[in-house]
């Protein structure tokens, strides 16, 4: 029978392995980012919104941890288009070919069936 100390030891070993893996992943990530081809200065990830160019400071530094690479960009509402205005403008665009049928994805408007 396994003693509780053994179980504790097992969990500690598992936890240690997990930490070791995270350290390994962190080191790998940093070494990958140090490679010039992997992260040239202009390849920082950023989130843009239309009509409102983000300040350079909102580009996420390349040495961030993986989870920080996609930090959401705070909204800059100045001059931003309201969603309903956007939809109205796009609807006013002449379709490439006269519309005679609804979008295939219109079917998504059909309420999905009950979940199992």
């Amino acid at each position: 029978m396994m003693h509780s100390d053994d179980v504790l030891s097992l969990f500690e070993r598992i936890g240690g392995a997990s930490d070791a893996y995270q350290d390994f992943a962190r080191v790998r990530h940093k070494s990958a980012l140090k490679t010039p081809a992997a992260a040239p200065p202009e390849t920082t990830a950023k989130v843009e919104a239309a009509g409102s160019a983000l300040p350079a400071s909102e580009a996420v530094p390349a040495h961030s941890e993986p989870s920080a690479i996609i930090e959401p960009t705070p909204p800059d509402t100045a001059g931003s288009t309201p969603m309903r205005e956007l939809f109205a403008r796009l609807l006013a665009v002449e379709p490439a070919i006269a519309e005679t049928t609804a979008s295939p994805l219109e079917r998504l408007r059909t309420p999905p069936g009950p979940r199992a």
């Binding site: 989130v47 509402t77 931003s80 969603m83």
Partner: peptide, 20 residues
């Protein structure tokens, strides 16, 4: 919550980030 396209974009990325 969002009203504008910027805010919508922000909300979208918050959602994607939570889900990796």
């Amino acid at each position: 919550r969002y009203e504008t396209l910027d805010e919508w974009c922000f909300a979208v990325n918050r959602c994607w980030q939570k889900s990796d």
